[in-house]
Computed example of a mutant assay.
Amino acid sequence: MTTNRQVLIEEMPKDRLTLSHFRVIEAPMPDPGAGEVLCKTRYLSLDPANRAWMQGATYRSALENGQVMSGFTLAEVVSSQDPAFKAGDLVECDGGWQQYFTKPGRALTRRDPRTPLSHLVSVLGVTGRTAHYGMASLGQPKAGETVVVSAAAGATGSIAGQIAKLAGARVVGIAGGAAKCARLVDEFGFDAAIDYKAENLFTALKRECPAGIDLYFDNVGGTTLEAVLFRMNLRGRIICCGVVSQYDTGQPAPGPRGVPGLIVTKRLTMRGFILGDEPELVSLADRELTTWLDQGQLIVAEDILDGLETAPGGLIGLLAGENFGKRMVRVS
């Protein structure tokens, strides 16, 4: 009899995430009820938000000890009790860290097959859509502007920076390590990259952004946001996508200096968002990202691990900055 491998939350972390916070089990195969669909996970997305969900309720309900770890999945329909889906269909949803799962048909979104399939998790999945939604639709970079992107070598930042370049902006990325910074410039077309591990951010931003910063795409918060605030131009825009510097800790650092003082004096606009707030913008992201990708205007970096059991270590490594581009797990 086929079983269902699952990764459970053994205990909520009170400080940094470790392997001991997870447990891998073999569970019985789920059986779809009326209106439900049985799915087999193909790819599991690993995202900094996975760790944020462990801190309590946010835009979604809080996770609990003993439950299957939540995570976004690209899956294949095995069998369906919903006439809208059939075996072999590709779907996406929050299927969790498990080989098989059941969901009501209304919770699934069908995806058209594509080669490579992993692009439906990276540039054409949550990652790319988030980058487009935040950068293109909300940030609206313009030709000649200076745009700064933090966590620029990550899944979202690497796409967001390229979108700003397509708009004609000068793009400066912030990343950790000389190798990542070199790739951003040499492969991904960034105009400059700052290694926050090797130099003072205030000094580096003054050097690379001599005319100030018009738009900042923030993935990290903390001291990086603070340094950028002091270089923002009058009526600049800040798009808050994530706060990865504050996720994997039991004691988040105090908020950055300059809030709200610099926001007031510089007349800045600071906006947060959650993907899906405006469905029509997600549809726009799908159309434009597909066009740019098909035309060869986007470079995609993927970091693919094999086997569901690699997910806990993969997430821990992601939070430590091991990856370049989109980290995911190939489950089947």
Rank of each mutant, 00 (worst) to 15 (best):
Y59D: 04
T73S: 14
F101T: 07
R110V: 02
R111S: 04
S80C: 12
L117G: 13
H119Q: 14
F85S: 12
E76R: 07
H119V: 04
L117C: 11
A49E: 01
L108Y: 03
R114I: 07
L46I: 12
A84E: 14
S61G: 06
W53Y: 07
G56L: 14
T73P: 02
A75M: 08
T115E: 13
R110M: 10
A57M: 03
D112L: 01
T115S: 14
G105S: 04
Y43I: 11
R106N: 12
G71D: 02
W53L: 12
F85W: 10
F72W: 15
S70M: 12
R114W: 12
W53R: 12
R106I: 05
S61H: 07
P83N: 11
Q55M: 14
R60D: 01
N65P: 03
G105Q: 01
P116A: 03
M54Y: 09
Q55A: 15
V77R: 00
S80I: 12
E76K: 10
D47H: 08
M54Q: 11
A49F: 06
T109W: 04
Y59L: 00
M69V: 13
Y100F: 15
D94I: 15
K103S: 14
R60V: 07
A49V: 12
V77W: 00
L46R: 09
L63S: 09
A49M: 05
S79A: 07
E64T: 09
Y59S: 06
V91K: 01
Y43F: 15
L74Y: 08
Y100V: 00
R106F: 06
Q67A: 10
L74K: 11
D94S: 15
D47W: 09
F72L: 15
Y100P: 05
N50M: 15
G71Y: 11
N50I: 10
S118Y: 03
A75E: 02
A75Y: 01
Q99C: 03
S61I: 05
A62G: 00
D112R: 05
Q98P: 01
Q81L: 07
V91A: 00
L117F: 08
G66C: 06
L46V: 06
V68S: 15
G95C: 12
L46Y: 07
L44G: 10
A57W: 03
D47S: 11
A107H: 09
L63F: 03
S79T: 08
A75Q: 06
F85C: 09
R60Q: 03
E92K: 14
T115Q: 11
Q81G: 15
G56K: 02
L90E: 08
C93V: 05
G71A: 07
V68C: 12
G95K: 05
A62Y: 02
A87T: 13
G88Q: 02
S79P: 02
G95R: 11
R51K: 09
T73L: 03
C93Q: 03
S118N: 08
M54I: 09
A62L: 00
F72H: 07
E76T: 06
F85P: 01
K103F: 10
Q55F: 10
R111K: 12
S70Q: 12
L117R: 13
A87C: 09
V91S: 04
D112G: 01
L74S: 14
V68L: 08
Q99E: 15
Y100S: 06
V91F: 02
A75I: 05
G56H: 14
R111H: 03
A52Q: 09
L44A: 07
F72Y: 14
L46A: 08
Q99I: 00
M69H: 15
T73E: 08
R110P: 00
D89R: 11
K103G: 04
R114G: 06
G66Q: 13
S45R: 10
